[in-house]
Design a protein around this nucleic acid. Sequence first.
DNA 1: AGTTTTATTGCGAATAATACTCATTATCAA
DNA 2: TTGATAATGAGTATTATTCGCAATAAAACT
Lengths: 141, 141
Amino acid sequence: MDLIRTQGRRITRQRRLVLETLRDSQEHLDAYALFERVKVRDSKISLATVYRSLALLKESGLVQENRLGEDHGHFEATQATPHYHFTCLGCGCVIEFEAPQVMEVVATLCSGQALQVTGVNLHLSGYCADCHAPGQDGGCG
Amino acid sequence: MDLIRTQGRRITRQRRLVLETLRDSQEHLDAYALFERVKVRDSKISLATVYRSLALLKESGLVQENRLGEDHGHFEATQATPHYHFTCLGCGCVIEFEAPQVMEVVATLCSGQALQVTGVNLHLSGYCADCHAPGQDGGCG
DNA sequence: AGTTTTATTGCGAATAATACTCATTATCAA
DNA sequence: TTGATAATGAGTATTATTCGCAATAAAACT
């Protein structure tokens, strides 16, 4: 969190609170849900501050935003090992999975095309084991 | 396009136009840019119809929506071989790349967790060869 | 070809997510 | 402790996308 304090930026109670709340909850909260949780501990905090804190924390790499097929972002504290998401179009459940091959793809691209990759977002959608696709009986693709 | 005509759905001039325009342009158009292009051929078409057509074409798999780091979607006609996107945070350019390993990851997940994957979205962000990251001199990650 | 049924359109208004404004407050350096 | 200024809170603005509804047009049926 200290690396925020570059370029004259300040560590505030609100920013600490946003990050802590995100770390405590192992879910994929959207901005409003996070706002409601944070408000329990700081009833005066505003939604705008939550958005601003998230933007800052994202910039510093402490937080990541995922687009899970909805029209708004979901946020989570950055973890040690990268992971990715699958969203069920039936029940809406989100399944996390690891896939080291993804970072290999990234590494190949980095060297091959001289790209510097700072963000990797893999999102799968489909139907989970409990939900069957309409008119199909399982399978892949 | 004929598979739209299920469930009493109709193939309309506007829908055909939206799909054709998207196929003709090899860029990643957002809804409004697409609207402007389509309007050249049908000056009466409305933005709402473009959105509705896109939603329908997405459902049928003829069109795909990509979130390229901005707060709105970009659309492209579905192609034979899947590809993915890298967005430069410096200049905003978008680089497409293929990566067969991604579909292998998907296949593994499908069999391992009994998931049925219908959509795969991999989006990388970072800095292209022309844009250097602030305070770093290249590298990966 | 003409008629009927009803999905689709065009328009403007509505909604939802996120960003901005600005007076006030709080963080940090000296 | 104090001063400079970054950040906040509250409300408003903006932007992307969807909705409601009367008018239109695609497909089915003569």
